[in-house]
Amino acid sequence: MESDRGGRFAALLRGEKPARPVVFPMVVANHAARLEGFSISEAVTQEDTLARVLYSAYRFYGYDLVMVFSDTMVEAEAMGAQVIIPDDDDPFLLDPPRVSRLEPANPDKDGRMPVVLGATRRLKALLDDEAPVLTSLKGPFSLSSFLHGIEKFLEDLLTDPGRAHEFLRIATDNQLAYAEAIVKAGGIPFIGDPVASGSLISPEMFREFARPYLEQLVSAVHECGARVGLHICGETKALLADMVATRADFLSIDEMDMALARQKVGENTVLMGNVSTRLMLEGTADKVAAAAKECLERGGPNLILSTSCDVPTDAPKENVQALVAAARQWGTV
């Protein structure tokens, strides 16, 4: 067992080049639950199960980080959105909250935020400094869209920007408290902002409605003395410079040419990514290994070798193993 995982991650974020690449295929609750024989609903509603499946998956695959991520709807649900939790599938948003006045939730009490925080605490206790624990939270833009309804929120960007900013402020307040609670629980906040995607909005909209609130969140985490990561789904070519400007400590990017991403963010930005999740699901272990190698060649050395988004529930374990092995073998053959 390697014992310098945490050290290598910290070194990477300090700007040093670790001897071997840090590797973390984004295994989260769904894949880990399936791997360990639990249903997804058990993993996303019980803090002990969530911690247990993530820990077991970490031991089984032997990657360098752990990510506490149950599903995208945790905060929206805690703020009053109606979320369906199927027996063995990812929770999904049914309706935005039906309240006249939205208020930030209490991270220690509302919805399943305590589940996520509890699992973070447990994993931190189990792993201590052996491996860093990332804990996922949503970017204010995505959370606002879940709270208002995605289409209505996107329309507001053009027709009622004032109302959009109102949602964003409330969502940001919620996330500031949640991020602080994550840091206190021993987690490294990892912001996912799937709706603030270049596939949906223009770079100008990102600059007006997403970036300022991300900046606020990032600097609040920095003030707590912690690091923070940022992931945006889908198309991000035109957003990379703005993602750098949020001052997040590492940027996780979805499918795109890693060499182009590296060129756009410069040598000093730590990137995380980006072996295709499609390939993880449908490809062979050989193809995953080749893609991982290409990723390291094009995006390294300031790179956390990872997947383009979360590892699909039913991705074959051989593919996840191949990605981890590619990092271990890097530079030796």
Binding site: E151, L154, E155, L157, L158, T159, L200, I201, S202, M205
Partner: peptide, 12 residues
């Protein structure tokens, strides 16, 4: 040249 918000409003 345009994005989802514009398309949503155009369909309205």
């Amino acid at each position: 040249e345009c994005f989802v918000p514009e398309v949503l409003l155009a369909s309205k």
